[in-house]
Design a protein around this nucleic acid. Structure first.
Lengths: 66, 66
DNA sequence: GCGGTATGTAAAATATATTTGACATTCTGC
DNA sequence: GCAGAATGTCAAATATATTTTACATACCGC
């Protein structure tokens, strides 16, 4: 279950994974693994990513589809 | 930074910490520590809690106040 | 086709969330 | 006031997110 919404929001802001990683204070791999759905980030990290991308938790991490 | 919103949502549903813990599949201590702000839960756990309480991520875990 | 940039991924090490078990405190009904 | 239920918290153990280092691949302009 990839996180496509997060990837789209990142691209909308013209950021690559490394840029975003630097902004939120993690490594590029962590961003990559979250986008590819390989692991579940902590709430703090989710919030940092949302703020960096100008989105909310529901925007990026809430699954509408059942 | 306690999570008051989560505690209120839990009480609205007439659940104690142990009930909620059982529903989302963690221990009572984990719920207690999250409500008291002692640590940052994983996204998966946040979503499980939201669904158990009939709320969304923004409802329970998004900080409006700066 | 080549070189550089962006991304996926793997293994080992580290940090931290979560569990387990236990005890102390608070609250409430009686 | 007491008994029981709900909660706070601690220490040690375990699971897992995250880092570090590194390599492979895909893509794009040239």
């Amino acid at each position: 279950m990839k996180n496509k919404k997060m990837k789209i929001a990142r691209l909308e802001r013209d950021l690559n994974q490394e840029d975003l990683a630097k902004i939120v204070g993690v490594t590029r791999q962590t961003i990559s693994l979250i986008e590819s759905g390989a692991y579940n980030p902590s709430l703090k990290l989710c919030i940092a990513i949302c703020k960096a991308l100008g989105k909310t938790l529901d925007d990026l991490f809430w699954e509408v589809e059942k």
